[in-house]
């Protein structure tokens, strides 16, 4: 790994100032992706801006009917949070399925969504639950946040400060976990907000996406049988050494049915 200059700002404003002034500076949250990437020299930033000591980015709070999770809140904290478990148990469950316990002691929600790995779990939670990503500059609807493979709507130097969730009537996350990496080969979040149903898929495509046909079928009638005959087009999905696109398309259907069954 090439060496770098290490910064440890105490506020979001200070962090933004550093990344604004140094072109090649990289923000680091938990480092669970960035450090392995740097070891392989797939990234060699001149400067690392460690967000780990910024108190305003940590913690989970209620704001009216919403739940706001600070960007630097770790997966272990979300998984064990009484607030999250009560308001959105599916989100606590999702966080508890990321990686392994040691990874969950470091990895954060802000880092996960900013990295936008196609096989990460949180994108399905954020999109499926119709969350709003809060940055130091603006609010971004989840549907507009994830723009492609490892790509988001974030501008250079823009810092995710938190994610704002509203509690659904019911939600469930189902995942086919890669046995070695722990990443989602396929992950499906189904959420019900009144008659509005959202189905978000991670792991299967180059970026998280919503299964619109499934949503329409479930909005008409929220039942497992509504998904019969509704399939996902494998042409848009990923094929790799772990799973073919056809297999992933099949698994999306299986997991969506399991998620619906769990909350209907």
């Amino acid at each position: 790994m090439l060496d770098f200059t290490y910064h440890r700002p105490a506020s979001v404003a200070d962090a933004a100032k550093i990344v604004g002034e140094i072109e090649d500076a990289k923000l680091m949250a938990g480092g669970m992706t960035l450090i392995p990437t740097m070891k392989q020299r797939l990234a060699s930033p001149s400067d690392i801006v460690d967000l780990g000591r910024i108190p305003e980015l940590k913690g989970i709070r209620r704001d009216g009917a919403d739940l706001v999770i600070g960007a630097m809140t770790r997966h272990a904290d979300v998984a064990s949070s009484a607030l999250v478990r009560e308001a959105i148990p599916a989100l606590a469950s999702l966080a508890g399925q990321i990686g392994d316990p040691a990874v969950r002691h470091r990895g954060t929600i802000g880092g996960s969504i900013s990295n936008a790995d196609p096989a990460a779990d949180y994108p399905a939670g954020v999109v499926g639950l119709d969350a709003v990503v809060e940055t130091n500059q603006r609010q971004i609807a989840a549907d507009d946040f994830f723009t492609g493979l490892f790509d988001t709507a974030l501008e250079p130097g823009e810092i995710v400060t938190g994610v704002r969730f509203r509690a659904p009537d019911a939600a469930n996350y189902q995942k086919l976990r890669h046995p070695a990496s722990g990443y989602a080969v396929v992950g499906v979040m189904v959420a019900r907000f009144g008659s509005n149903i959202r189905v978000a898929i991670t792991g299967a495509g180059p970026s998280v996406f919503r299964a619109m046909e499934m949503e329409a079928a479930l909005s008409a009638k929220f039942a497992v049988e509504s998904l019969a005959g509704v399939s996902i087009d494998a042409a848009d999905l990923l094929s790799d050494m772990h799973a073919s696109a056809d297999y992933r398309a099949h698994v999306v259907g299986v997991l969506a049915k399991r998620a619906v069954a769990a909350i209907s």
Binding site: Y6, G31, M32, G52, A76, A102, R106
Partner: peptide, 20 residues
């Protein structure tokens, strides 16, 4: 794996300066 402030973490994926 070591314990950082009492919690298990993977020390190959943590810079020493982060443990300051």
């Amino acid at each position: 794996i070591v314990h950082l402030d009492g919690e298990a973490v993977k020390s190959c994926t943590l810079f020493a300066v982060q443990a300051d």
